[in-house]
Amino acid sequence: MRMSRKKLELKDVGLQMTSMIDIVFLLNVFFMLVSDMTKMQVEALTLPVAYKATDDKNPPPNRIIINVKPDGAIRVNNVPYDRATLESFLSREAVKYPDAEGLSTMSVKIRADANVQYKYVQEVMMACMKAKVWKVSFGVSPRDASRTTPTGE
């Protein structure tokens, strides 16, 4: 049986530039917003080093990041707080997520500079306690995973 050969019809396969520009524009907007939000929540700090820390993946949506700078200044979302205002802010946020025990399911991540005096971090922890927030974690930098002891000695 002889098959008839049909000549391949060549269609115009030019790129749809308009749609592509739309996509690129949307991507740019998205990246700009994300990077802005990241800057707002996370300050540039030298975090303490820890070996037994866990990856900060899948953080709860109701988590607040509190930054404690080397001079003890407290900042949340790029807004400065002192102890009293932080406590009232945390209390306001904590009541939005109540649990059965009368506490809050909200979590707090304390990102404190490695060289800040401990008393400033204590102030933040005290504010969390008074706001009935008990889920607290500390931001740390990972130590070299190939080392097998806490100090790598």
Binding site: P48, V49, A50, Y51, K52, A53, V68, A112, D113, A114, N115, V116, Q117, Y118, K119, Y120, V121, Q122, F138, V140, T149, P150, T151
Partner: peptide
Amino acid sequence: NGKPNCPFKHIMSALDACAW
């Protein structure tokens, strides 16, 4: 029990040792 003027990194080292 950390001293108030102690650098925070030492407190984290102690917490890390507890986790260890």
